[in-house]
Design a protein around this nucleic acid. Sequence first.
DNA 1: GTCCAGAAGAATCTGCATTTTTTGATGATG
DNA 2: CATCATCAAAAAATGCAGATTCTTCTGGAC
Lengths: 245, 245
Amino acid sequence: MSQTDKTTRATTIYQKVRADIIHGAYAPGAKLRIDGIAAKYDVGSNAVREALSRLSSERLVERHEQRGYTVPPVALDDWRVLARTRCFLEGHVLAESMRRRDDLWEEAIVVAFHRLSRVSRAARETAREEWEDAHRNFHRALIANCGSPWLIDFCDILADHAARYISFSNAFRKAPRDGLAEHEALMKTVLNGTPGEASDCLTRHYTHTLEVIEDLFERDELAGGGPSAGLAELTGSIAGLVRKD
Amino acid sequence: MSQTDKTTRATTIYQKVRADIIHGAYAPGAKLRIDGIAAKYDVGSNAVREALSRLSSERLVERHEQRGYTVPPVALDDWRVLARTRCFLEGHVLAESMRRRDDLWEEAIVVAFHRLSRVSRAARETAREEWEDAHRNFHRALIANCGSPWLIDFCDILADHAARYISFSNAFRKAPRDGLAEHEALMKTVLNGTPGEASDCLTRHYTHTLEVIEDLFERDELAGGGPSAGLAELTGSIAGLVRKD
DNA sequence: GTCCAGAAGAATCTGCATTTTTTGATGATG
DNA sequence: CATCATCAAAAAATGCAGATTCTTCTGGAC
């Protein structure tokens, strides 16, 4: 392990596997062999076991008693539920955040947006991870003032899962949208508009993402995929792995 | 281990420790020593490690890197946030469940209430666990139709934490309220009323619990506790264990 | 095609080794 | 005398390798 310091092995593996899953490094439905991951990262199987165990609580991996762990499947219906749940929850949490408006919160939003805009201008390929962090931080800043760590946590979990779907979709699109203008509009509504307006704005933002990925699913299912494997193929490959439990 | 079958050791320990924490068997802030638990349940330390690891994802135990695990503290402010978050989330989820009303869902509610009423009549001491299960199932049945496994999951997590506070509060009250009448009224509103009415009814139900436990906190803090240790004392004992991280 | 050994593969468990944190004693300093 | 720093011993968490148990795969009989 490169980082010898504060973090434990299990935590390091946890972060790496988590990032891998969110970024689509493993196919949906794929089996996560403990020994395999242990060998890949050169650690004992215990660390891997603990990492997967933690991930399963966030549903980023599926746990099958005495049969190991798998990457969660990907399906159009699941995506719709996820996206709508996100609209509902984060919309309300944002509105609540605005009702409790204070200076620190507003300033943190402005800073988060500034950072996002800086990264957006950077080269896309070299700064993908940075952009994702900045983007995540911006959305987190919006809802940070809602007064309930629980709801913030729940939004975070949903965001992780949405990020996985977005990663898969990015593999099939030449130019993932940057959306800086959308984020700027969102920020302005949050700072100057009513809670209802901002909530609607956020919902539109997420609904847009929902539809883009819906289209990808439907096109793949209709056309059966082009030169590269499509989302439909990914979900198809799951069917073969799914057990009759 | 008595049950040799389907469940793994780690899962068994997970369930036991989880129940212990929810039922207040461990003091808030107490350290959960791995070897201690391993010895208590006669398993290896790995199983305990994995159990605690899973529990920490639900925030039922706190994880301190390389310093082990502790039972989460208990505080009036935390309780208020928890209870209000619950009102908000479960209220909306219930309303959504009603908007998607269907026969199976209604029937499941009726059955769940019937079971709850049966257990309510049984002796309180002998059937405490049964009552808790029936109560939990009743509330779960109400929201089961909301269409989002995510939200159901989130409500479940909040319910676990609320159950812990309620366990502590029960230790200081002669007769915990049964609330069968309240639950019957709730069911009738859900089945015959509007989503808004039902959501309000549920909120009142939870707000009542909120206030009862608020009172316990405040009385203890003012009076300094009587013959038995009060909630304030519990929270006080935490202060001594909290580290300066 | 279905069923049943038996082998192979994989997850789980155990006990011990290693590393880190905590504790407690000792002595220096203001 | 009180406070602080240092350091060794003890306690506890983390990590590892092999033993054990369960699942999955394979080949053959019916």
